[in-house]
Computed example of a mutant assay.
Amino acid sequence: MDRETIYEDQTVSIGSLMLESGNELHDVELAYERVGPRGAPMILVCHALTGNQYTVGHEEAGWWKGLIGKGASIDTSDFQVITFNVLGGCNGSTGPQSINPVTQKRYQADFPFVSVRDMVHSQKKALEELGIHHLHAVIGGSLGGMQVLEWGLLYPDWMDHLIPLAVTPTLNAYGIAYNAISRFAITNDPNWRNGYYSSDQAPTSGLATARMIGMVSYRTDEMFQKKFGRGVKGASVSHKEPQYDVESYLHYQGNKLVSRFDANSYLYLLKAMDNHDIGIERGNLTLVNKRFKANILAIGFKGDLIYPPDELEKLFQQGSSSQFYLVDTKFGHDGFLVEFDKWGPLIKEQLTMINKIEGVK
């Protein structure tokens, strides 16, 4: 008999949360999406910088459609999938846009800095509030991959499997450099007003520029050349009007993000990425590697400028219960969002293997 399939799009309260910085947040809430058969093994998906909790989606397709769903590599006929909007985000979880219970005003720039470890601690508290005390797997790419690594180190007994994608043990100078330019674009927008801007006069120009900068770093030069080349939209009549196809694409992506994302959240999440280092208070990578207990499938993507795949491979090359796979792709960092036929079967195989192991016990 088929098990009942549930879908939840809700918010869970976790009370107060002490941050790594020493600041304490009160009345913290995390928004989440949860879908799958009741009682099925639980998979936690951690989203990237501008992602949200809608991994699967309900009325509209989620951002990992093709990888997750009925009959997909992560099959929601066999697994429950849950995703939280990260702490500091702007899709329902406590962040800069939230009301500070002390002042009864929006936090905005008064919101404290949060770390990737803070995000993971908040997610664990949220899971416990929902009655979940064990995870079949934790998976995510980019900022989501950072959360996956921290999950495996902070709570090594909580999951059977870790699947970090398109991530490295720490963000390198190249990644920080791109983030610095993005920050400069937002904080120098006249409407930013030191983070205390109104909703009708937000730093949209700065945020759009930051997104355009990010889009350049997410793809390879080969992909840009293949997709756009020197395609021309028409004769340019001003410096502001896009003339080439690639310009039009970047303008579109920048304006698209402005309609759904908060500039302060963008800044806070960039800072969390910059500051993340799995070796802090843990030692070198050899010592860090020994802390993992879960089975690990690490996946890197050829041409990833932000998270060079060889750094992820180096982290897990000594692990007896870990494996690394390099995806041959022209998409670079964005490879974890496309071409699921190339690497989705690896995830499906690993999850099935764990099921078989559990069945023998």
Rank of each mutant, 00 (worst) to 15 (best):
M1N: 12
T5P: 01
I6T: 13
D9A: 09
T11V: 14
I14W: 07
I14Y: 13
L19E: 12
S21E: 12
S21L: 04
G22Y: 09
E24T: 14
D27E: 15
V28E: 14
L30M: 10
A31M: 11
R38N: 12
G39Q: 13
I43H: 08
C46G: 03
A48W: 15
L49Q: 08
L49H: 11
T50C: 05
G57D: 02
H58K: 14
E59F: 08
E60G: 04
A61K: 10
A61L: 07
G62T: 03
W64A: 07
G69H: 03
G69N: 05
S77D: 11
D78I: 05
F79S: 00
I82D: 04
T83K: 04
N85C: 07
N85W: 04
G92F: 12
G92I: 11
Q97M: 13
S98D: 03
Q104E: 14
A109K: 08
A109C: 04
F111Q: 05
P112Q: 01
M119T: 02
V120T: 10
I132F: 14
I132H: 14
H133D: 14
H134D: 11
V138N: 05
I139Y: 01
I139K: 05
G141P: 02
E150Y: 01
D157W: 10
P164E: 07
T170Q: 15
G175I: 01
I176D: 03
N179S: 05
A180F: 00
S182L: 06
S182Q: 15
A185K: 00
A185G: 00
I186Y: 01
I186T: 01
N194D: 15
Y196I: 03
Y197Q: 00
A202S: 14
A208W: 00
T209R: 06
A210C: 02
R211E: 02
M212L: 03
G214A: 10
M215K: 09
V216T: 10
Y218L: 02
K226Q: 15
K227W: 12
G229P: 04
R230A: 14
G231S: 14
K233P: 00
K233W: 13
G234M: 12
A235H: 09
K240D: 12
K240N: 11
E241A: 11
E241W: 09
P242G: 11
Y244C: 03
D245E: 15
E247V: 06
S248R: 11
S248H: 12
G254Y: 00
N255G: 09
L257F: 03
L257W: 02
S259D: 01
R260L: 08
F261L: 02
Y268N: 07
L270N: 02
D274R: 02
I278R: 08
G279D: 09
R282K: 10
V288N: 02
N289H: 13
A294T: 08
A294C: 04
I299M: 04
K302E: 15
G303A: 12
E313N: 13
G319S: 13
Q323H: 08
F324Q: 07
T329C: 09
K342G: 01
P345T: 10
I347V: 15
I347G: 09
L351V: 07
T352A: 15
T352L: 10
I357T: 11
V360T: 12
K361G: 08
K361S: 08
